[in-house]
Design a protein around this nucleic acid. Structure first.
Lengths: 151, 151
DNA sequence: CTAGGCGGGTTCAGGTTCCGAACCAAGTCG
DNA sequence: CGACTTGGTTCGGAACCTGAACCCGCCTAG
């Protein structure tokens, strides 16, 4: 078996860069909440029990990064809400992977929430797929290929 | 508004629990290194530039959690190495998802590393799949179903 | 007009965590 | 013996997180 699936010895690592944005505990939880449909400061604050100053900071950073968009939903008492951008929505595999892993290894009994394919209501799978072979496969069948630096 | 079960505050969230273990920046990077084949304290420390005390603490926590196993590889100068357990190896979708997302949104130009299906060498895709409909789909087609608390 | 309340923050004191550097210990090398 | 390596621990100061208090714009009640 090949344990070098994620081998990346030299280059600027995308994992590292991604973690620089969403690699702290609160950011991920804020994003989980936005995926769940929460959009307003106080909704999220109450749900997470996060200190206001920290939430304020995280939201600002996520907006600056382009993951969330701030959008005014009423003018008179000026009120904003936070919505996922496309960049933000594409974080979903990370959250789904975290959730599945937590379900399998940390949760006693049945998972509290199951994600399903909205078209049919059946539980979704998250997996690796080869569009060439038209097969799904697991982590042990991954290899890595590095960009040639010399050219 | 009421998203009913969607924001049930009492259900223990697997994402939250998972983040409790691997939700800080260093833990994930330590795991990335172990996926890359690094196993020894100083290898990892040099690679990440992590302070010794922090690495020591993270390794202890990951071992306690069952994600890494400490294994003596020589007796005379007593030396241990850290290896992924199965629980640890199954974190790979999370790292792959982080990497893909970073490649797409944070990386200039071509990704430095491409993960491929080892059987054919073609780049792998990570996506949601419905085993009932036999289709792959994106984040917009996910719904969630919560366990009935029945009371 | 004043009081109070809400959403969305900022500021501040105190505690925790992180960091870099120094040190320790066990063993090996010259 | 002294120097060097691996795998840590200990330490003081910097950075960060936390809870509580406060502020602002606006609304409603009295």
């Amino acid at each position: 078996m090949d344990t070098t699936a994620l081998d990346d010895p030299t280059s600027p690592c995308s994992i590292e860069q991604a973690l620089g944005l969403v690699g702290d505990r609160w950011s991920m939880l804020v994003l989980r909440d936005t995926f769940r449909g929460l959009r307003r400061f106080d909704e999220i604050r109450r749900d997470l029990g996060i200190p206001r100053a920290v939430l304020s900071d995280r939201l600002r950073r996520l907006v600056d990064a382009g993951i969330l968009a701030r959008r005014r939903y009423q003018d008179h008492p000026p009120r904003d809400e936070y919505r996922l951008t496309e960049m933000g929505r594409e974080l979903s595999p990370i959250l789904v992977a975290l959730m599945h892993w937590g379900d399998r290894w940390l949760q006693e009994g049945e998972p509290p929430t199951v994600l399903v394919h909205s078209a049919c209501g059946e539980p979704l799978e998250l997996g690796f797929h080869c569009s060439s072979c038209h097969v799904d496969f697991g982590p042990l069948e991954i290899s890595s290929r590095h960009r040639q630096e010399a050219s």
